[in-house]
């Protein structure tokens, strides 16, 4: 494994290995504190994403390494018209590994084809965000102690939500997974995900617009934000942004060990009165994100 561009690049065994390493890091932080001493991570963020960038930087720092980079295209040579290929070639002389976020879909793949150092896709437009998916998988493993035999509710923007598409793809490889797809009809899961992922792998799923209809059956409830930047039409965004708001009342029939997840940032889709519920895992999920990124950096740098 030289790069991580798409979650599909990883086999189930490689994902299991990353999760195992991440769990060991959580238990033995001191053991890993100097593993990347003398190594540098470049965070090339051509569009802002404070949370993901800080998570990568914290991950490298906790491994004893250093970080450099930029947090928007305005502060990079791209604003002068430089190509991805040229930028990556140059940064490869300054850093040992690169985490890259770009608004254009496929940009990290282009970078990986030109780079001499490992590339991690830290999000490319509405396309892939594999470290978010790894974060989600580590969260599920840590909170539920398994990645199979789960009923997973996915709620909100299932049309444009790349985290949802990647999570479905990743979880479809485990046994006895059932999905409950909860969305307004305008934001239904795309047909190609149903056909090329769910049907192809014989995965059981139901679609509903009612968040409470299957609540009592769920082991995981994955909430998503309706993202303004994915809409071409502002009216559609305004109409759909607050379609679902999860609050305590809607959780009345939920299992006691339900795991409520959200890739964050949250806007209105989870009421703050849910935050104190022990089933709310979304802040812990952000913390798991740092540990899985530490495991990934070690793997790509071939450090044991």
């Amino acid at each position: 494994m030289k790069n991580l561009i798409d979650i599909k690049d990883l086999s189930v065994e490689e994902i299991d290995e990353l999760i195992l390493t991440a769990r060991d890091i959580i238990k033995n932080k001191e053991k890993y504190s100097e593993k990347c001493k003398g190594k540098k991570l470049a965070t090339l963020f051509f569009e802002p994403s404070t949370r993901t960038r800080l998570s990568f930087e914290a991950a490298m720092m906790e491994l004893g390494g250093n970080v450099l980079g930029f947090s928007s295209a305005d502060s990079s040579s791209t604003s002068k018209g430089e190509s991805i290929s040229d930028t990556i070639k140059v940064v490869g002389y300054y850093a040992d590994i690169i985490a890259m976020r770009h608004p254009k879909e496929g940009a990290p793949l282009v970078a990986s084809l030109k780079s001499d150092v490992p590339i991690i896709n830290a999000g490319d437009g509405g396309h892939n965000h594999p470290t978010q998916t790894l974060t989600d998988l580590l969260t599920i493993q840590c909170e539920k102690n398994r990645l199979d035999n789960l009923t997973i509710g996915l709620c909100g923007d299932l049309k444009f939500g790349r985290t949802v598409h990647s999570l479905i793809t990743a979880m479809s490889r485990y046994k006895n997974i059932k999905f409950v797809l909860i969305s307004p009809k305008e934001l239904n899961i795309p047909e190609y995900i149903k056909k090329e992922v769910l049907d192809k792998n014989n995965i059981e799923y139901v679609e509903t617009h009612n968040i409470e209809e299957y609540m009592s059956e769920l082991d995981i409830l994955y909430m998503t934000r309706v993202q303004k930047e994915r809409f071409f039409n502002e009216d559609d965004y305004v109409r759909l942004k607050d379609y679902y708001i999860l609050n305590k009342e809607k959780l009345v029939n939920a299992k006691n060990d339900l795991c409520i997840m959200h890739p964050l940032p949250r806007v209105n889709e989870i009421s703050t009165d849910v935050d104190d519920d022990e089933r709310a895992c979304y802040f812990r999920q952000a913390n798991y994100g740092k540990y899985i990124r530490m495991a990934l950096i070690l793997k790509l740098l071939d450090i044991n």
Partner: peptide
């Protein structure tokens, strides 16, 4: 045709498509 695709801005990049669904010629 995707305006968000990297091929819309990166120079000297081949336009490459793969057959992913033979039955429906996708």
């Amino acid at each position: 045709q995707n305006p968000r695709c990297i091929t819309s801005i990166e120079k000297n990049l081949d336009q490459v498509f793969y057959l992913t669904d033979k039955e429906n010629s996708v």
